[in-house]
Design a protein around this nucleic acid. Sequence first.
DNA 1: TCAGACATGACACCTAAGGTGTCATATGGC
DNA 2: GCCATATGACACCTTAGGTGTCATGTCTGA
Lengths: 163, 163
Amino acid sequence: MPETDRLLLPEELPDRLMEVFNLVGPLYRRVQRKIEQDAARGVPVGVRAVLDLLREHGPMTVPQLGRSQALSRQFVQRMVNEAAARGLVESTPNPAHQRSLLIGLTPAGRDAIGAVVEREHALLRQTDGSLTDADVTACVRVLSQLLDLFKDVDLGNAKPPQV
Amino acid sequence: MPETDRLLLPEELPDRLMEVFNLVGPLYRRVQRKIEQDAARGVPVGVRAVLDLLREHGPMTVPQLGRSQALSRQFVQRMVNEAAARGLVESTPNPAHQRSLLIGLTPAGRDAIGAVVEREHALLRQTDGSLTDADVTACVRVLSQLLDLFKDVDLGNAKPPQV
DNA sequence: TCAGACATGACACCTAAGGTGTCATATGGC
DNA sequence: GCCATATGACACCTTAGGTGTCATGTCTGA
């Protein structure tokens, strides 16, 4: 890679990164709406998110779920309760912390999220095929760094710097 | 770039792209919250979005604004009205379409969005400096393709396929 | 060992982003 | 000139997601 692989200077960074943000907004909204449609007959967006996390990472506690997706623990709790009410999720004792239960998928939950993800995968397979491994890796790198920049934006009951 | 630059196979695409989505959500939310904080003393998120678009593309009509950000025209209209009420934006006759007015920034609006963007740029300059031009370009490519995938997700008063 | 800081769950309440439905009017193409 | 369509305006709604607070439980460190 010749010229283009050079590091971006601090002066050019902001404008370039803005290009990214200008895509993130519309993308997020459209995906949200797409999921809502799919959800018409089932899983609300928030519940879907919880199920998907449990599917990928195995059982987790509510606060862990919240942190991993930058959502308040209270909100996640509601989604988990909702999912539990539908029998998609169940809590089991947490060996590490007795108070904080581990939330895990039930077989029904695993089926439900499996079906949803399968439909989504079908959609994603329809990209035009010109994306390279390096593209996606770079994209992930960029987004991760941006996310990092906003790390400090706290929520839920995160403690304000207790001076 | 040896191996990594190869095209992704349809089978691997979905999982790789999911990595991207898993970052887009948290990022969107955190940025939204960050802007809200900044907005505490002024510009709501939606208004900020409108002003920013006008700043980059010059005067546009309300429906154009909506389409370009995947927002319903009604919602954008409200944001524009709000901005107009604050004197940040003004409508001028549209030579091309008489009914649909062109929305443009007032000097006050230009100042306001300029200040906001300046603060944001300051933040963005703080990335750790390891991003290359190619990274950002790839990221934009990936996000654009994804956005394209969801192009069909219609909203506002878009017509359902009038068979 | 026990006091105080911190984490968790539960519940109530709130904000606002963003959509939907619908009307009247104005366009613009055929 | 007529009909589909786009626009603006207004009313209403959904729901994602946050905040405040309490009681209880857990952890840490002096």
